[in-house]
Design a protein around this nucleic acid. Structure first.
Lengths: 224, 224
DNA sequence: CCTCGACCACCAGAACTCTCATGGCGTGGA
DNA sequence: TCCACGCCATGAGAGTTCTGGTGGTCGAGG
């Protein structure tokens, strides 16, 4: 698999190159927007990792230009640290997924693989259950129009429950996937379910996160 | 690769089986010590995952018995939750590595692969630098004979530095490997280096963990 | 020698995660 | 119906991690 990484910061670029090569990707680097655009045009890549903040031509414009030329290579955008550019705009310009810094190396690789698996040009999934929405890339949750602030662990738990909404999910499944650990006190799940309810249900008079006694929990898709 | 999992708790056993199968291992289960011993004898496995607390015959004794019969199949032991058995004894009986519960699924798989890569029957590595020793499996650190208590993050940082002792390790390398993240504030490394110094150097009048200005840090192998 | 900028050490405090203990509630059996 | 038991909810609190700010130190250059 051929990957083009467009990133001006040398250290970041080198780290990405090393990491991705270790995963078996063939990695080319471009250090500014113009070079990146040129290489993306002629290089026949399977996927492009594109920083937004770039000298000469922003990642923003690289993406826009490529799409204008009907080049549908999958693009994974990396957000700026400050909020100058909104990732949502990046998506509107035709990026396929985005990551906000700082991001985990594992997550980056997982997203790249997901991009490579599916048809190019599709939008990243935004999970929903009733009027509850969760955007894994932007790390944002809303109940209706109202944003909800979650800690990392709460977010991971909700994401897992939303991916399996309307199913009954056992505590041991949750521990495996959200905590990645065997033989941990299941009470920690109960505690975090409690935290979530206080944030996504109680303030809205809902009861979407239901207990199924003896079996686990279910996140109701109809909003509870 | 064929794996035998000897574990009596049904849920744990099922989770291990599913997880390892997903990694491409062929997994057989035994639910007590006698069955496990029998299967290990005749089954020609590449590695055995062996719980200590087992009905009928402890993992302890299964291991001892196999080694007495000159069966050198690599064995990864899982510790009891309570401290009834000491893992060090397990190693003395011929286990090749051990994990203490609760453990991460990712760590388990990594250890299994490590076992499969190297010659069977060898002891797990205990890292050392001067009179500083670190046992990754038992999660224990000593300065000379004196045990040192570390938090998980401190331990991970020290482990990485010890694996590369006498080398200069840059902050970005540390962030990548210990924090698994790009573009995080490097100050967090400085803070944790400070914590480590207060635990492994200052109380012993040492200076093993050295700053290399502009380059990173070095853990001196001669004890500083 | 002094200044300046970059890099680093360290304190303080906030946020987050997890453990423990207690009490409520449902379910099944007497 | 009432009780007993197991499952779950929740408050409290401790330990850990991380952020931000401040000040020190080193090296280069005037």
């Amino acid at each position: 698999m051929r990957v083009l990484v467009v990133e001006d910061e040398r250290r970041m670029a080198a780290a990405l190159q090393r990491g991705l090569q270790a995963e078996g990707f063939a990695v080319d680097l471009a250090h500014d927007g113009e070079q990146g655009l040129h290489m993306a045009r002629v290089g026949d890549y399977d996927v492009v990792v594109l920083d937004i903040m770039l000298p000469r031509l922003s990642g923003y414009n690289v993406c826009k230009q490529l799409r204008a030329e009907e080049n549908w290579v999958p693009i994974l955008m990396l957000s700026a640290k400050d909020g100058e550019y909104d990732m949502a705009d990046g998506l509107d310009l035709g990026a396929d997924d985005y990551l906000t810094k700082p991001f985990s190396y594992v997550v980056l690789v997982a997203r790249l693989r997901a991009l490579l698996r599916r048809d190019a040009g599709r939008r990243p999934a935004v999970l929903s259950a009733g009027d509850l929405t969760l955007d894994p890339a932007r790390r944002r949750v809303q109940r209706g129009e109202e944003p909800v602030e979650l800690t990392p662990r709460e977010f991971a738990l909700l994401e897992y429950l939303m991916r399996r909404h309307d199913e009954v999910v056992s505590k041991s499944e949750i521990l495996e996937h959200v905590w990645d650990t065997f033989d941990t006190d299941p009470n920690v799940v109960e505690v975090y379910v409690g935290y979530l309810r206080r944030k996504i249900d109680a303030p809205f008079g809902r009861g979407a996160l239901q207990t199924v006694r003896g079996a686990g929990y279910r996140l109701a898709g109809d909003g509870g």
